[in-house]
Design a protein around this nucleic acid. Sequence first.
DNA 1: GATGAATGAGCCTTCATTCAT
DNA 2: GATGAATGAAGGCTCATTCAT
Lengths: 201, 201, 201, 201
Amino acid sequence: MRKIDPERQRAKRRQIIEAAGTCFARRGFHATTTAEICAAAGMSPGNLFHYFDSKNAIIEAIVEEERRDTAAYFAELGTAPDPFDALLGFLDVVMALAADETYSRLTLEIAAEAMRNPAIGALTAANDAETRAAIAALLRAAMTHGRVDADLDPEQAATWIAALIDGVFSRLAVDPSFAPEREKPMLRLIVSRFLSSRRPV
Amino acid sequence: MRKIDPERQRAKRRQIIEAAGTCFARRGFHATTTAEICAAAGMSPGNLFHYFDSKNAIIEAIVEEERRDTAAYFAELGTAPDPFDALLGFLDVVMALAADETYSRLTLEIAAEAMRNPAIGALTAANDAETRAAIAALLRAAMTHGRVDADLDPEQAATWIAALIDGVFSRLAVDPSFAPEREKPMLRLIVSRFLSSRRPV
Amino acid sequence: MRKIDPERQRAKRRQIIEAAGTCFARRGFHATTTAEICAAAGMSPGNLFHYFDSKNAIIEAIVEEERRDTAAYFAELGTAPDPFDALLGFLDVVMALAADETYSRLTLEIAAEAMRNPAIGALTAANDAETRAAIAALLRAAMTHGRVDADLDPEQAATWIAALIDGVFSRLAVDPSFAPEREKPMLRLIVSRFLSSRRPV
Amino acid sequence: MRKIDPERQRAKRRQIIEAAGTCFARRGFHATTTAEICAAAGMSPGNLFHYFDSKNAIIEAIVEEERRDTAAYFAELGTAPDPFDALLGFLDVVMALAADETYSRLTLEIAAEAMRNPAIGALTAANDAETRAAIAALLRAAMTHGRVDADLDPEQAATWIAALIDGVFSRLAVDPSFAPEREKPMLRLIVSRFLSSRRPV
DNA sequence: GATGAATGAGCCTTCATTCAT
DNA sequence: GATGAATGAAGGCTCATTCAT
């Protein structure tokens, strides 16, 4: 009398998500066929649909997972003693992720798909909103520590930091010489100067 | 017996490019069918392929045109008396373009397609390289005027300014509250603080 | 070590037949998936196929059951004192069945499937032949009582009575205002006038 | 400068309808693949969809055509001098159609599909309503001539004549010995006795 | 040059049935 | 006996592109 084993279920879904992620990163979402995903996941074409209702549902799951990971990351970061250092640390993490080709290509793929697919668009937008809120929270905390220009609007500043991060991934799509790991200090510098309270000009 | 009229030829191609651009901006490159482009351009499918060998060739032409426009813009900008002001002016132009929904969506569409399609990828990369080179040239000139931190590597700084610009377009895809026109001053501020020679902290 | 319990076996089969009948009536034979039948019968897909070799075998069983019921009904009817009244009573029973939506839809479903599926077709044809034979027998008996026009061929007349009955079910598919219960007298009238050698009214 | 030739268009559609009708009659609507229809119509799989949006649209067109034919037939019949003879003539026509195997199987196929597909169901119901109305009109006219029992409700009588006709097609599905041509007189007899106000022999 | 009909490869998904446990 | 995961064949439809006129 075998019962539904949620453990196995989840493992299978992970396996598919992993396989699909690799495929999407390699060939793009549209160009990837469900057959390819099945092959990569080592299963029959029909079986895939026991775990996901559609090809779309797979990216949705990928985005959802990314969202959970990001939320978890920020939850931890929120308790950091120095919020400004936490922010700079976050930037390093972003750059490390950007250096992972599969991750970065998948990120770009999701961004592209978000424009087309309303469901993905909504998930991505929600994900982005959460990220900006978390950054804004860090900024607010850092302001009380006097580490961030108090004249800045935290939400707006967070938006531009998010823009900068998006820009990093765009670089990867367009500029083959862009090496995230090497650029870590520069990103820190830009953000630091941006947020710094010392007057420029 | 009429000779091929290159004038007419070019006019037709423009007409198609215009129609296709609108379609791509509205529904995305993949989702746009050649039939839709034909309808928008007011011509038959057979005729479309007299002017472009393939659907791909159409975006290629769009990107190529964008490239020419950008090059022309920078050629003019290179002669500006104050290179730093020219740079800030360029940022304003970018923000104005970003505010144009058709333009911004088409830009995002091209970026997405560049990842998939090697030909588009190469064109986009070349386009981007030219842009970065032009920005770098402005930076170098501004350095001699003492308006830009001479410790910065102009190429690297240009790369990050390009990243910031890309980031603006990403914002549009993901954050419905992002209004480019309103954000102009903030972009100027970030770039100014970034480039400024006054040392923060 | 338990022996196969034929009682349980039969009970399970009935359970499946019942569930499947409801599904077929509701959504049609082709549109009903085995998964739906399983859900309705409260069992797993694997288990279903312990009791029936195929989806087809299920309707076959349904038709077979219908056949047994009909045969039993006519066996009883054959002993009726007045065969003509028995026939009219049979028509009332038909109309009562037609008023049952599940029964009528299932009947139509079986008829449709009979055209496609040779096995079902054969069963249905056999069933129909038995019904006609039974009606013909009643007619022959009624003729000896002088209640039925002796110039009619009993087999042929039975065929047309069967046609009329089929027609009732067709009405249900096509005419939403057709109410079997209300039409009982009319069916009696038509058949009576058809069969009668005397003047009606 | 070839313009859209509506003549050709219609011819192609007819060709497809014909081919599809044959296929549906032979193998049933569900079992017939679009590829088969294309093969039968002598065209490529893609081309079919220039003329019909979907497989469904093809039966819809078939039903619609049937409806037009029926309406035209009754329009002509409405002007007949003797409505009762016209009705009996109609019954002969029905029997002649029933004798055409392709026509009769297609009719049954449509009836089956009408139960499943709401669009087909609506068309079929409308078609049926028109037919009943036309028969009722004939009956009413025949009543004024004294050829039909004036105590009958024309609509109800028409309904039962329609049922009888449906029953004829059902016979074809279930009783291989049923030969429509041979049964013509019997149908006339049944309907005559049903409608007659005089005493039949 | 222009038209629109024709082509045909390919993809996502469904579902009856089988099989390992 | 029972479970539910796995199989894999098949089908409707799309759409970039070609071709006859």
